[in-house]
Structures are given as structure tokens and as C-alpha cells.
Simulated scan of single mutants.
Amino acid sequence: MVDEDGEVTEGEVVDGLPVVTERADVLEESPAGGALSVPGVQAAALAATGFVAGACTVAVVKRHRTKKAAKKRKKAGPLGEIVGSNSFLIDVHLLKRS
């Protein structure tokens, strides 16, 4: 151990025995009167949190796509929306027939 002055001191050795209880620590009484396991409650909370996070992600992505589509419709020209365009360099050769 290190004390306040920064000097290393010996640690205290403590002898002890484990204390066994009659009831397991992982079981707690639920408000309904039954026993709930803490890992089960944690798993349920984790699943609910994951579901809510996924639902929020879907809502945000959907809203983003809707806004993007509305912006595209607004920018459409007089002939409609241009979906894609390509430009080509054309080299035309005239051939002499014999």
C-alpha cells in the first residue's frame, strides 16, 4: 500500500471465513410477492433498452429519408426529377468506300 507521503508500506493481513446465508443473494422479493432473479431482471431491462434504441434508430433514419426525398422533390426541374445522367465522348469516323 502507498501512504499519503508516497511511501510504500506493508498491507494488513486479515483472516476471515465466508458467511453463508440461508437465502441466496440473487433472489429478491418482487412487489407481487414472488421471487425474481436479478440476472433475469437485468436481461429483461437490457432487452427493453435494446428494443427502444432500435426503434429510435429506425425513426431517425425514416425521418432523414423523408426529409431527403422532400428536398429532392423541391429541386426537381421543369421536366421532372433527373434520376441519373451520363456523358459520353463520341468519336465519329467517316469511312471512304471504294
Rank of each mutant, 00 (worst) to 15 (best):
residue 1 M to F: 08
residue 42 Q to F: 14
residue 94 L to S: 05
residue 73 R to W: 10
residue 87 S to R: 08
residue 27 L to T: 12
residue 56 C to N: 07
residue 7 E to G: 01
residue 42 Q to C: 05
residue 93 H to A: 04
residue 13 V to Q: 12
residue 83 V to R: 01
residue 59 A to Y: 13
residue 55 A to E: 04
residue 24 A to N: 07
residue 9 T to S: 04
residue 26 V to P: 01
residue 53 A to C: 11
residue 74 K to H: 08
residue 5 D to C: 05
residue 19 V to L: 07
residue 11 G to P: 01
residue 42 Q to R: 11
residue 43 A to P: 00
residue 14 V to C: 07
residue 91 D to N: 08
residue 7 E to Y: 10
residue 20 V to P: 00
residue 21 T to F: 04
residue 98 S to Q: 13
residue 61 V to W: 07
residue 25 D to W: 06
residue 54 G to V: 02
residue 9 T to E: 12
residue 8 V to T: 13
residue 91 D to G: 03
residue 68 K to C: 00
residue 43 A to I: 10
residue 48 A to V: 01
residue 77 G to M: 01
residue 13 V to I: 15
residue 36 L to P: 01
residue 58 V to R: 07
residue 11 G to V: 02
residue 33 G to R: 03
residue 91 D to C: 06
residue 11 G to S: 13
residue 80 G to R: 03
residue 50 G to W: 07
residue 63 R to G: 01
residue 84 G to D: 03
residue 39 P to G: 01
residue 29 E to K: 12
residue 33 G to T: 03
residue 19 V to W: 10
residue 75 K to N: 12
residue 30 S to N: 14
residue 4 E to R: 14
residue 40 G to T: 02
residue 40 G to P: 00
residue 37 S to W: 00
residue 78 P to M: 01
residue 66 T to N: 11
residue 46 L to S: 14
residue 1 M to S: 13
residue 53 A to Q: 10
residue 86 N to E: 08
residue 86 N to Q: 14
residue 98 S to W: 00
residue 14 V to N: 03
residue 17 L to V: 06
